[in-house]
Amino acid sequence: MKNLRILSMLLIATIAGLAAVVFASRWLTQQSSSGITKVAVAAADIDLGQRLSPDFVKVVDWPTASLPPGAISDTQALSGRVVRASLTRGEPVLESKLTPQGTAGGLSAVIADGKRAITVRVNDVVGVAGFALPGSYVDIIVNTLRDSKDGKPVAGDRSDQSISKIVLEKILVLAVAQEVNRDDTKPKVVNAVTLEVTPEQAEKLDLARSVGTLSLVLRNQIDPQPADTNGATKSTLLKEPAITAAVAVPVVKTVQVVRHVAAAQRAPGNCIGVIAGVDHGAECF
C-alpha cells in the first residue's frame, strides 16, 4: 500500500514536470516569434544602378527591436527595383536605397534630382593617381590664359599670362570609366571620370576644358569649407614684387608774358613863347 502511494506521487510529479516543460516551451516560442520580423536582405554584393531580381534578395529573421526604418519584407515588391546605393551581402534592402517605381536601371537612375552627369577625360595625374573613385568628392582646377578687360589676350610672355584657378568645388564622382561601384577603395587609373553637376556647373566645366587643361583635386568628403582663392600666376608663384610703371608727370611750362606798355607820349598842346632877358623859351599847356 505504501509502495502504491509512492508510485502515484512520482507519477503525479512526472506529469506536472512534463506539463511545466510544455507550457514553458510554448511561452518561449511565442515570445521569440513576437520579437522576430522577416526582412529582405542582399544575397550578394549589389552595385548602385543595378536592377534587383530574386537572385539578389533573400528573407531572413531580424529582431523587431532593432528593425531599421524602411525595411522591406516582401521580396516580390523588390522585383525590378533599382538600387541608388551599393549594398553588401547581408545588408537590409531599405526603401531609401531604392529608386522610385518604374525607374530604368543604369547610371541615370542614381543621378540626383536637378543634377546632370558629365564625363571628362583624365590621366594618372589628372585623376589623382586613380584615387578619384565613385562616391568621392573633387575640386576642379583649370589652367588657362588670362584675358584683358576688353577680352583680348594679355600682351607679353606666354608664361606671364598663364593662371590656375579652382572653378568648381565638391563635385561628386559618379563613375570611373564604366564602373560605378562605390565600395572599392583600391586606386584605378582610368581615362575618363563621370561627375555629377548642376546644369550651370556643366556649362562651366565644358567651357573650362575647351579653354585650358583640367586637374582634379581630391577633397575630404565631410569638408564643407569653400576655397575662395584668387588663382595662381607666375608672379604669385615666385612671389615676385609687383612692378609699378612710372607715370610721367607732365611739366607745365609757365610762360611769362611781358607786356611792354609804350609810354603814351603826350601830344603837345598850345605853346607860347617866353622871353626872359636874353633867354628865349616856350611854355606849353
Results as ranks from 00 to 15, higher is better:
residue 125 V to N: 10
residue 98 L to C: 12
residue 126 V to I: 05
residue 115 K to R: 15
residue 110 V to F: 05
residue 111 I to F: 05
residue 89 R to M: 11
residue 72 I to Y: 08
residue 66 S to T: 08
residue 120 V to F: 03
residue 85 A to F: 11
residue 80 G to L: 05
residue 91 E to M: 05
residue 109 A to N: 07
residue 122 V to T: 13
residue 124 D to Y: 11
residue 127 G to I: 07
residue 113 D to E: 14
residue 69 P to Q: 15
residue 100 P to I: 08
residue 131 F to V: 08
residue 76 Q to E: 14
residue 79 S to F: 06
residue 74 D to W: 02
residue 137 Y to E: 06
residue 85 A to P: 09
residue 73 S to L: 02
residue 130 G to L: 03
residue 100 P to T: 06
residue 113 D to G: 12
residue 114 G to A: 10
residue 131 F to G: 03
residue 99 T to H: 07
residue 107 L to E: 02
residue 91 E to T: 14
residue 78 L to C: 02
residue 105 G to I: 11
residue 75 T to I: 15
residue 92 P to K: 11
residue 109 A to T: 02
residue 90 G to W: 04
residue 91 E to C: 06
residue 97 K to S: 09
residue 117 A to K: 05
residue 87 L to H: 04
residue 73 S to F: 00
residue 83 V to Y: 02
residue 102 G to P: 07
residue 96 S to M: 14
residue 68 P to E: 11
residue 82 V to Q: 04
residue 102 G to A: 08
residue 112 A to K: 14
residue 76 Q to W: 13
residue 123 N to H: 15
residue 83 V to D: 04
residue 131 F to I: 08
residue 134 P to M: 02
residue 109 A to S: 13
residue 102 G to S: 06
residue 111 I to E: 02
residue 99 T to N: 14
residue 126 V to T: 07
residue 87 L to I: 05
residue 68 P to G: 10
residue 127 G to T: 04
residue 79 S to E: 08
residue 91 E to V: 13
residue 100 P to M: 14
residue 131 F to T: 13
residue 88 T to H: 14
residue 66 S to Y: 08
residue 105 G to W: 03
residue 95 E to R: 11
residue 129 A to I: 01
residue 89 R to W: 05
residue 128 V to N: 00
residue 80 G to V: 09
residue 123 N to G: 13
residue 126 V to G: 12
residue 117 A to T: 04
residue 121 R to P: 10
residue 70 G to A: 10
